[in-house]
Design a protein around this nucleic acid. Structure first.
Lengths: 184, 184
DNA sequence: CAGCATATCTTTCCACTGACAAGATGTCAG
DNA sequence: CTGACATCTTGTCAGTGGAAAGATATGCTG
């Protein structure tokens, strides 16, 4: 909890973003209510507007934060493509609220400069990891991104058939490896 | 099904579903309004409740319709996995409204029996196509589904980097092939 | 320290939404 | 014709997003 130090609230912006993550985790992005966030933060229902303009503005900030977190997680894989793929899935499962918003462009201002910049920051590590691979092509990068993104999305949607390994990282590792060793 | 014919409206249920597809195509599933659908269909704001109960009920019906459409499209590939993958992407792009709802489980009653049945109908063709492949495993099915679903989702989200083939089917075919011929 | 400009937050208001209840209307069986 | 029923309308309520205008704390300038 942030200290009630400094301004009226302390750091309302941060508090609202954290409340949003929690609320989305409970009921999904569609059911998000600005007034509910304001209640959670202990301020009036109009306070959020000052920081984010409107609901889409708040979700835009959340998307930027998400892309930055994702970029950091992928960077930590340090060129290891399999590790990066697993990190992608780990991020999606561990930061479900961010992830769901990030890839629901109808919810926020996708053409916001901050979003565009953060998005490309997240895309860079995967791209360079592919480029470092012998014979790595644009198509390989697209295939790698598609497979991890698809797996993560299906996992979050609960659309995967039963019988999958209950640990998303284990299941993801197996699926991603399929991209490198098709035979086995 | 329950398509009663020849009442006040004619077939309000159908009209509402089609209006929903159109409205979602314009503004996304989050901005969907039952009252707007009622206006589009020329009925009062409370008429939809009688057919679908509530908003989630309407989206449940839309999801079932979507899974059935998808199952039919995949069946038409007739065991050809590459064709099925392309058909998956074609469905997602061509029936964006259905697709977005289908994989947003927070929006509808995902545990509805009709949904479960339709979902497994859609999953069956891909599964059997994999099984028919020499050495086809559960992991292969998962990888195939992940890659097409991921590509379709990223395409719809507009998250793909520039420079991709503007025709989603062409780009998808190239990516999917990566699963079969990793070398080239 | 004093006074002011500004960022932050509150109060008030409006149009809209989803959901419910009760009544009206068309359709069909007998 | 009549009653039963599904269909649709009207009226209502709490909750929401957003705008406008006022209140208050904070930091800056002198």
């Amino acid at each position: 909890m942030t200290t009630t130090r400094g301004y009226h609230h302390g750091d309302l912006r941060r508090a609202l973003l954290e409340a949003a993550v929690q609320a989305i985790g409970e009921s999904g992005p569609a059911a998000l209510s600005l007034r509910d966030l304001a209640r959670r933060a202990g301020v009036s229902h109009a306070a959020p507007a000052h920081h984010f303009g409107d609901k889409a503005g708040l979700l835009t900030a959340l998307a930027v934060e998400g892309f930055d977190l994702l970029a950091a997680a992928l960077d930590r894989a340090d060129g290891d493509l399999l590790a990066a793929g697993v990190a992608y899935v780990r991020f999606a499962v561990g930061h479900r609220a961010h992830f769901e918003v990030m890839f629901s462009p109808g919810l926020y201002h996708g053409d916001d400069p901050a979003v565009l910049a953060a998005r490309s920051r997240a895309w860079a590590p995967l791209r360079s990891g592919i480029a470092a691979l012998p014979g790595g092509s644009e198509r390989d990068a697209l295939a790698a991104w598609s497979i991890v993104h698809g797996f993560a999305t299906l996992w979050l949607a609960g659309a995967l058939p039963p019988g999958i390994d209950p640990d998303p990282e284990v299941a993801a590792r197996s699926v991603i490896r399929r991209l490198f060793e098709p035979g086995e």
